[in-house]
Design a protein around this nucleic acid. Sequence first.
DNA 1: ATGGTCGATCAGAGATACTGATGCATGTGG
DNA 2: CCACATGCATCAGTATCTCTGATCGACCAT
Lengths: 295, 295
Amino acid sequence: MHVDPHLLRTFVTVAECGSFSAAASRLGYTQSAVSQHIATLESDLGTPLLRRRPVVPTPAGERLLEHAGPILLRLDAARADVRRTVADPPSTLTLAASPLAARSLATALAEVRRAYPGTETSLTVCGRDEVVAGIAAGSFTLGLVDGIATPTDPLNLTNAVQLRTTSVAHDTLVVALPTTHPLARHGRGLSLGDLADARWIDAPDLAAPLATLRAAAGSDALRPAFTYNGTDLHTLLTLIGSGHGLAVLPRSAVTPDLAAVPLATPRLVHRTELLHGHLSDPAAEAVATALSDHE
Amino acid sequence: MHVDPHLLRTFVTVAECGSFSAAASRLGYTQSAVSQHIATLESDLGTPLLRRRPVVPTPAGERLLEHAGPILLRLDAARADVRRTVADPPSTLTLAASPLAARSLATALAEVRRAYPGTETSLTVCGRDEVVAGIAAGSFTLGLVDGIATPTDPLNLTNAVQLRTTSVAHDTLVVALPTTHPLARHGRGLSLGDLADARWIDAPDLAAPLATLRAAAGSDALRPAFTYNGTDLHTLLTLIGSGHGLAVLPRSAVTPDLAAVPLATPRLVHRTELLHGHLSDPAAEAVATALSDHE
DNA sequence: ATGGTCGATCAGAGATACTGATGCATGTGG
DNA sequence: CCACATGCATCAGTATCTCTGATCGACCAT
């Protein structure tokens, strides 16, 4: 029949944990149950999904993992979407935003709070995927996600199926460098190809992930010399300023103490998009329109 | 926990059939089981999903239906994708195409059959959604889908998640009219806005569906005076020729006995895209590259 | 009224999905 | 080289779930 989502969920957990017993305690099952789940899934699909000891996905398992996340997300999204049409709109406005997108919220939000003074508001800043997942699962009513895209295309938000998206802001992309850097005075704009051998800082949670830039440039170069796993813009700018490497950022994110040379090719822009399910809450709708008009 | 896909499937079937007992026999269950399925789903989601007698989805049910199709499709796609990595490539090349996309196949296919003479080939022409679903579910290895899109964007194939797509051909869109029609000599190109009150033939399975054109034009006009539910191009052209109305088609589809005036605004093109999962079959890969190169 | 259709409900048989105990392979420290 | 610890597989048993078949009540048409 169909692949059972319960089995899928334990499969994902086991793959994440790299261990049957760890997954079991995480899921509140016994190790025996987890073992049976995986066995059932494997016999159902007719192929081993995990190599044991150490526990690593087989190629078939990798395939399944690619599907499992979106499926489970979508399943939750369906439930959340149905709940939304039934439950009355919550009194608190629950917002989420990825770090560089959060700034777009402040001004629009101010207007709305003036118009609806009674509304409690909560804002969560988290990773792009978490924003999408949270909106889908109904834990946030409105989300802002930033990312890079070609000037005409929308952001490629995989998993965002059945969610409404609106582009709310775009900004040119620049390469941020120390002012002392030889390229800092490069007036006409830089090409990614020229920067293949530069020292890059990869800050996937904050700036344009290098992997995305590689895909856009069609190049296999652009290897990170430094990886910053954090969401604090100031820290990243400081790292760049003290010469640890350079990064691609939206122009408005770069402070004047750094050089910001436009990224000429490939032609990409920084875009932030609004993301939501069906809006029944007037305050949420007001935020949405305030943000859209801001464009 | 999660929404159970089995229940989801019977829910979809019941909604389609508009009857519990009909759905039961279609699914090979008893009416009792179907009734219990729906009851379980409703109590799980905490809201009625169907109004009984007559059986019609409630608003919450409509929401769920929007999710159900893609979820079930994706579940099948996951299984098919895993199977593909395990099973050896099938000896027959299984192709699918939407009616207007099929023509792009012929030439590319000829080359490949010369290169791989041993390969049995099957081609199925069916609706766009069926092509996508069939590829996802693994019943076809390669699919061609046509549709309209803005010049820079790819086709908006919802449900095509986790499938690879390549644009293989594009063609300008024209309004097909009888040569005697007053607009037939309209040299510079027509605007959809000017044609709001024209007699339209809607041929959703074959040409650009009017609903899509309406969305692109941002207009609520463009109501069909005639609907052709069929996939035969010749029939549609004959209908146009005998004055039943006009339709938007790719230029290459319109024979010289009809007038074909370019569609100037909105700027849209007819595009056909190649669609497939992971290709392990060399012949299938050859077809894919032959088609891509043809651009 | 009356027979027919359709969905809801109920009891019970069969399948299922857990737990806890045990078995067996692998890697590790004495 | 041998205990021993660790971690997955397997098994038996039970609690639960999920069907079927029978029955009921509501509605519709005759």
